[in-house]
């Protein structure tokens, strides 16, 4: 059995009167794709922002790769990559320049950053237009792929993917799936959030369903499905709706 690469214990985070994360605990094994699912406002993105050292938790312990979030945040930054929900790139620069820039910020040398940028762009099927066009001239799917390629700069051991396939065509989505599977095969640990349950079912070894800042269910997709019926007949989306309800969320 693989060791836990991420351990989260009793995590809390509030913004004024709103409790965004309310006592969340989970662990992710090394090389595992772990899905964090939940309706809008469930606390998924806040959890990712805490784990990726952007905001501090109010309470709780987080260990990533053996480093304590509270005490060794800078070491954690050296082993993580993040692909945020919103496109976080420089639209007036080429894809290649974006990757090289973030590679340099991740601590790579100029030569390493260039080599890795080319490798990542090739993997994402973007090499042809990588140097010629500014990113703002790219299609939505291409921008998403650049967003993911940037996250891979610096050879992270843990990758946070916050809805990486939102609003893109099936081809780009498929490319991202293939890339994620390839990264897992190389031993990368991935924390994945998505609203597409089919996607989570296909990619994730385990999922946790969050609602109102709490984890309300956790396990393999098969195990969760079997709690509500025949796993071959029921979908993860149906399980999700049974657990989180059908009321609309803000």
């Amino acid at each position: 059995m693989a060791e836990n690469f991420v351990v989260v214990r009793d995590l809390y985070k509030s913004f004024k009167d709103v409790i965004a994360v309310n006592g969340v605990s989970f662990s992710i094994e090394e090389g595992e794709i772990f899905g964090l699912l939940g309706p809008n406002g469930a606390g998924k993105t806040t959890t990712i922002r805490i784990l990726s050292t952007v905001i501090p938790p109010d309470k709780g312990d987080v260990i990533i790769g053996g480093y304590s979030l509270q005490k060794e945040a800078n070491n954690i930054r050296g082993i993580i990559g993040i692909c945020p929900q919103e496109l976080a790139l420089y639209p007036d620069m080429s894809a290649f320049d974006n990757l090289v820039f973030f590679g340099r910020m991740a601590g790579l040398s100029s030569q390493e950053a260039r080599e890795q940028a080319i490798a990542n762009l090739e993997m994402m099927g973007l090499l042809e237009r990588a140097k010629k066009s500014r990113v703002d001239k790219f299609s939505g799917g291409m921008k998403r792929r650049v967003n993911l390629a940037i996250a891979l700069m610096g050879h992270p051991r843990l990758l946070f993917l916050d809805e990486p396939t939102i609003g893109i065509d099936p081809q780009s989505r498929n490319n991202i799936y293939e890339t994620i599977k390839g990264l897992q095969a190389k031993g990368m640990t991935i924390l994945y959030t998505t609203h597409y349950m089919e996607e989570a079912d296909k990619l994730c070894q385990r999922v946790a369903i969050m609602d109102s800042g709490k984890i309300v269910a956790m396990g393999t997709p098969e195990a969760l499905k079997s709690q509500f019926g025949d796993p071959d007949k029921i979908t993860l989306e149906e399980v999700f709706l049974k657990i989180t309800g059908r009321s609309l969320r803000d």
């Binding site: 922002r49 990726s52 050292t53 952007v54 800078n74 930054r77 050296g78 993580i80 990559g81 993040i82 945020p84 919103e86 496109l87 976080a88 790139l89 420089y90 639209p91 973030f102 910020m105 991740a106 601590g107 940037i150 610096g154």
Partner: peptide
């Protein structure tokens, strides 16, 4: 606004 600041904060910068 672009989110690049947050992304940069997750590096060792």
């Amino acid at each position: 606004r672009k989110g690049t600041l947050e992304r940069l904060l997750t590096t060792r910068l």
